[in-house]
Simulated assay, not measured.
Amino acid sequence: MVLQWSTDDLVDLTGVGDAVEVLDRKIEGGPGARLRDLRTRGADFRREFAGTGVPLRVDTCDLVTLPYPTRFGLFRASRAIAPFLSITNRMLVIRWNDSDGRPRVLLFEPSDVKLGRNTPYFAELARRTPAPIIKRMVVEHGTVLDHLAHLRITPDEVDYIVFDHLHTQDLRRWVGTTAYQPDLGERPAPTFPNAKVIVQRDELTAMSDLHPLQTPWYQPQTYRDIPVDAFAPIDGSVVLGPGVAVIKTPGHVFGNQSLALNTSTGIWVSSENVIAAECLTPEHSGLPGLARWSASWQQEVVLNANTIETTADQYNSIVLEKSIVDRSQTDSRFLQFFPSSELTPMWTNPGTKPTFSHHAITHQS
């Protein structure tokens, strides 16, 4: 047990949002039955969610572009010769007013890029890679705080912090700690003093006793001294505000979750379940191997699969996401799925240039 507190301590915390019954009812049967059921539930949720309204504003903020193994990002499907592709991590900033008029701010994927480098997998990759190559392959676009300042949002205005999962994430500077941190040289005060981290209880439970498949991707020791009241745990899917929901999408990790947004262009979903919109419609992909692999194996999606915690569940969760979103208004072959880490063309990575990219979600009501 790495955490100083037990996940049982989270039980009495006040919940957030309104539960989504259509998604959270227990599904009976095996993976195939669950897949069929999720298609129906996704369509039902889509109709309900469209009626909740839209947020005031959605902004997209680029954080960092970095290398990622092709065999993980385009699981089994790619025929690219490049061992690595590039992904861009982005933060979404969502603003809305509650029914009582109270303004809300949610940060989706506000990664602390500097501390994220200590994740075991990426730390080892950096150790084995010459510095000049790292300099060419890693591009930092802007920090969380710089982006918020540009948007004229002060840290104390942030209500919610959400990640699709906690791979690579170190939250100590965002929510503070209860003890001195030797590696930071301080006991950090919370940068976002009023923010709650919305997380699936399943993921916090898993982090307390990691499986070997999970250990390269987490920094569990950094959660040891995080105050328990920094978390707002949920057990399923919730609508947080008009056109803003967090939906449970297990598979990539046990407690994976996705962000759903209803905007002026229709419904979007964002997560890291796939790294490119075309991975949801691989039959239209120009990436080497994807369309042929999808047809040969009769699989309709291409997973982002670095951990393979519960692969069938991840496949089903992607189909759920696929059943919720609208088609892109730019190119109707592709869907309004916005990867939180999106495949990005890089001259060093032949055969990995995406057929289609969203780059951003932009909305203002």
Rank of each mutant, 00 (worst) to 15 (best):
V274N: 13
G42F: 00
T60I: 06
T60F: 08
I133L: 15
K135I: 00
T330P: 00
L213P: 02
E109G: 07
W96L: 05
P242M: 04
S285G: 08
D100P: 07
M137I: 01
R117M: 10
R128T: 06
G15M: 05
H359L: 12
T119A: 12
T168R: 08
P155S: 12
F254A: 15
T178A: 09
T222V: 05
S208Q: 12
Y218C: 13
Q329T: 13
R25K: 10
G241D: 04
I87R: 11
E124R: 15
A80G: 11
V58I: 14
A149C: 03
T263M: 07
E342L: 02
K196S: 08
A77T: 03
V199P: 02
V175E: 02
I361T: 06
H147I: 01
G255I: 00
P182H: 04
V239F: 05
A82I: 03
V199G: 01
L204R: 02
W5V: 02
V301T: 15
V162L: 13
G15E: 12
R39N: 10
D164F: 01
Q336W: 01
E278R: 13
A43L: 12
G32K: 15
T249E: 14
Y121K: 15
V319E: 14
H141A: 09
A305T: 05
V144G: 09
I153C: 10
T352Y: 01
V199D: 00
L85A: 04
E186D: 10
I133D: 13
D100H: 09
